[in-house]
């Protein structure tokens, strides 16, 4: 597999050194080494069960590697990094019947905890974050009544309220229509430019990954490729990662897929 590391800027935001993760006898990730530089938009692409979420959990400090070492901003990502990292989870996993208003959810990004009654300052900051994602009008709409796209914006506002230097997103496009996804990606790119932030996003949408990311990490338990989108989405690497080219390859390159 390719182990080339691309250096665009000097500062390493995330470093994986020979990282292996095992759950009992199952190996989720094996011997992953890579450096992610500051200010890049990285998409993580791979088949289901390929270790994408495990990769993200290692950066979040929710998992520890069985072998090797993970460093985020030069530290082990176990403590004291919550201010520097913003996280957008998969929206399909949480309970929409929970009684909460979007403004409350966004404010949890400030405290890393639920808040009973918001202070004036917390309200102001939450509204400011909602404005950045174009969702001020949703501040007091019950969570259960939000669409997938609206909800994802709320989670994005929550994750950027502390202006983190590293933003992690786990399949944010799932359940969003095409127009909503384009808006979402534009908001991300704008945030990256404004804060010089690093963004790492898991996605199944190859086309979006191709157009929006600076680098693509192809994962299938091992690191298949970490390169610019044009090279990462080449026939060679896609066949190794997925065993086929898929329709997106045809859409991206306009080449007839004969699989």
């Amino acid at each position: 597999m390719e182990n080339k590391t691309i250096n665009q800027e000097n500062e390493n935001v995330v470093v994986f050194e020979k990282v292996t993760v095992r759950f009992g006898t199952h190996t989720a990730l094996e011997d992953i080494s890579l450096e992610i530089k500051k200010g890049l938009f990285i998409t993580v692409v791979g088949p289901n069960g390929g270790g994408k979420t495990t990769f993200l959990k290692l950066i979040l400090g929710l998992l520890e590697p069985t072998l090797g070492e993970v460093k985020v901003f030069g530290e082990k990502p176990l403590k004291n990094l919550t201010q520097a990292i913003g996280y957008v989870p998969q929206i399909k996993t949480f309970d929409r019947s929970f009684p909460a208003l979007p403004i409350e959810l966004v404010a949890t990004g400030l405290t890393g905890n639920w808040i009973g009654i918001l202070s004036k300052e917390q309200k102001r900051l939450a509204l400011e974050a909602l404005e950045q994602v174009g969702a001020t009008n949703l501040a007091k709409k019950p969570l259960g009544k939000l669409s997938g796209g609206e909800l994802q914006r709320i989670f994005l506002a929550r994750s950027i309220i502390r202006k983190p230097r590293l933003l992690l997103l786990d399949e944010p496009a799932s359940g969003i229509d095409v127009a909503g996804e384009m808006d979402f990606n534009n908001i991300l790119e704008e945030y990256k430019k404004r804060q010089n932030a690093t963004i790492i996003m898991i996605t199944h949408d190859w086309e979006s990954a191709y157009h929006h990311s600076d680098y693509v990490l192809l994962l299938n338990r091992v690191k298949i490729c970490y390169d610019e989108p044009k090279k990462a989405f080449s026939e060679k690497w896609l066949r190794i990662a997925f065993g086929h080219l898929g329709h997106a390859h045809e859409m991206i390159f306009g080449v007839k897929n004969n699989d």
Binding site: G61, L62, P89, D95, A100, L105, T108, N113
Partner: peptide
């Protein structure tokens, strides 16, 4: 309350 809303999110916030 936070863990009731979403345990994964609560864990991510340590």
């Amino acid at each position: 309350a936070y863990a009731t809303f979403d345990p994964e999110l609560a864990k991510a916030d340590k």
